[in-house]
Simulated scan of single mutants.
Amino acid sequence: MGVTWHPELSDKGARLRNHIFYSLDNCRGCPARLRSLIDKSVNHFQNNYEHCQEDSQCKIVGFVPDYAIIRSPVAV
């Protein structure tokens, strides 16, 4: 209570929810894999797509994110 979201996180709610559902569907019941998949979302929102799945939209040449890039260490 009394704590607010960092401004750079304001547009991440639905995207993070979708990433969590994707992670749950693709973890194959392995807690370590689930954690790894969820953790990748932080890099993704920092404009680092190195660890994203090869079939992700962000891997397409010319991809431009439609969300605010996280640059603040506090937001991370």
Rank of each mutant, 00 (worst) to 15 (best):
T4R: 12
W5G: 00
H6I: 05
H6Y: 03
E8T: 01
E8F: 14
L9R: 05
L9H: 08
S10T: 11
D11Q: 11
D11H: 10
K12F: 07
K12M: 10
K12P: 00
G13E: 15
G13F: 11
G13D: 15
G13T: 14
A14I: 11
A14T: 10
A14E: 08
A14C: 09
R15T: 00
R15D: 02
R17M: 13
N18C: 07
N18Q: 11
H19L: 03
H19W: 09
I20D: 03
I20V: 02
F21C: 08
F21P: 10
F21L: 13
Y22F: 12
S23P: 01
S23K: 04
L24Q: 11
L24C: 04
D25H: 13
N26Q: 09
N26I: 12
C27G: 10
R28N: 10
G29Y: 06
G29S: 06
G29D: 07
G29H: 02
C30Y: 15
C30I: 15
C30H: 13
C30T: 13
C30A: 11
P31H: 04
P31A: 02
A32D: 14
A32R: 14
A32L: 15
R33S: 12
L34F: 12
L34P: 06
L34K: 05
R35Y: 15
S36Q: 11
S36V: 10
S36F: 05
L37W: 07
L37H: 09
I38H: 14
I38K: 09
D39P: 00
D39K: 10
K40W: 02
S41W: 15
S41L: 11
S41Y: 15
S41N: 15
V42R: 13
V42D: 03
V42C: 12
N43K: 04
H44N: 11
H44C: 02
F45Y: 13
F45P: 00
F45A: 09
Q46W: 00
N47V: 06
N47T: 02
N47F: 09
Y49E: 08
Y49G: 03
Y49F: 12
E50P: 02
E50L: 07
E50D: 01
E50Q: 11
H51D: 06
C52Q: 08
Q53I: 09
Q53C: 07
Q53A: 14
E54A: 01
E54T: 04
D55K: 09
S56R: 08
S56T: 07
C58R: 00
K59Y: 04
K59H: 02
K59N: 02
K59I: 02
I60G: 05
I60P: 04
V61F: 10
G62H: 06
G62A: 03
F63I: 08
F63H: 13
F63L: 07
V64Q: 09
V64C: 14
V64N: 11
P65V: 01
P65R: 04
P65N: 07
D66N: 03
D66K: 06
Y67A: 01
A68C: 05
A68G: 03
I69H: 00
I69S: 01
I70K: 03
I70A: 12
R71T: 15
R71M: 10
S72N: 04
P73G: 02
P73S: 05
